[in-house]
């Protein structure tokens, strides 16, 4: 298994995935349910994240998600991914913020799970 990213000072780890049905970005939240909003993501320390990631990977098929991995984020409210790539995943394309899921039509906001 690949080594976990190590968060820096004031940073935490989140777990993310893509939903199988529609590819939508999701975040592992309370009760180990996959949530649509990064604000609902569970914050992990480096020490806790490894076991949580292993469980999430093992349950990915059952919970209908793919491409599960960890993301380093600032420990803010809501957490903010530190890399541009993950910020774009969380908030939508920088060239079209209006395309983000927060702005998408209601049809696409309906939970697929």
């Amino acid at each position: 298994m690949k080594r976990l990213s190590r968060p820096g000072e004031g940073e935490i780890l989140l777990l993310t995935a893509s939903r199988l049905l529609d590819g939508r970005i999701v975040w592992l939240g309370e009760g180990e349910h996959w949530r649509e909003s990064i604000a609902e993501a569970t914050r992990f320390t480096y020490e806790d994240a490894g076991a949580a990631l292993e469980r999430a990977l093992a349950e990915a098929e059952q919970k209908e998600v793919v491409a599960v991995y960890e993301v380093v984020a600032k420990d803010t409210q809501p957490p903010e991914p530190v890399t541009t790539r993950e910020a774009i995943r969380a908030h939508g394309p920088s060239v079209h913020p209006d395309f983000s899921y927060d702005h998408a039509p209601v049809r696409e906001k309906e939970s697929a799970l």
Binding site: S18, G23, R24, A67, R85, G92
Partner: peptide, 10 residues
């Protein structure tokens, strides 16, 4: 069949 999984969706 031309389907990729990208950053936001398929």
């Amino acid at each position: 069949n031309g389907v990729y999984l990208q950053l936001h969706a398929y």
